[in-house]
């Protein structure tokens, strides 16, 4: 019995640039996934609540405001608090290499920077979900 992959795409924080988030949402849906798109200006609390209610496999966060070191750890912590850290988190945006390392150490599954191919993002989601199911 096959699960259909469900991914939440959210834009936490204050920047209003949602082009990237929309492109990723579109790409994942065209790859056969169900993408729940929450739109702009989401708080980490709302993102995590939505992810739990929608029982998604993963959360994709798009952040271009520079607030990634505040917002992403908050999402990770809330997931843990809600016993839902089996939901993986990936992010996209303008994020410096140093921060990428730190975020990955905190448990972010992957970070995509400008220029990333949508096919890579799709592959990443497939791989990660497959690994989750095996465990």
């Amino acid at each position: 019995m096959n699960r259909r992959i469900r991914i939440l795409i959210a834009k936490p924080g204050l920047d209003g640039h949602d082009r990237g988030a929309k492109i990723v949402a579109r790409a994942l849906s065209e790859a056969g996934m169900e993408v729940i798109y929450t739109g702009l200006h989401q708080t980490p609390e709302r993102v995590v609540s939505a992810a739990v209610q929608e029982s998604v496999d993963g959360i994709g966060l798009s952040i271009l405001s520079g607030a990634h070191m505040t917002l992403i750890p908050k999402v990770l912590k809330l997931l843990k608090d809600k016993n839902s850290d089996d939901i993986f988190v990936f992010a996209g945006g303008i994020i410096p290499a140093n921060d990428i390392l730190k975020l990955k150490e905190m448990g972010v599954a992957e970070i995509f920077t400008p220029g990333a191919e949508t096919t890579d993002i799709i592959d990443f989601v497939h791989r990660t979900v497959a690994r989750e199911i095996r465990q």
Partner: peptide
């Protein structure tokens, strides 16, 4: 493709934190 973009939460997600509201998107 069998995929879907479920965007109804865009208009409703202010209720996401409210424990008295449960929103579920279905395709």
């Amino acid at each position: 493709t069998g995929g879907a973009i479920l965007g109804d939460r865009i208009r409703m997600n202010r209720h996401a934190e409210d424990a008295g509201v449960f929103i579920r998107s279905m395709a």
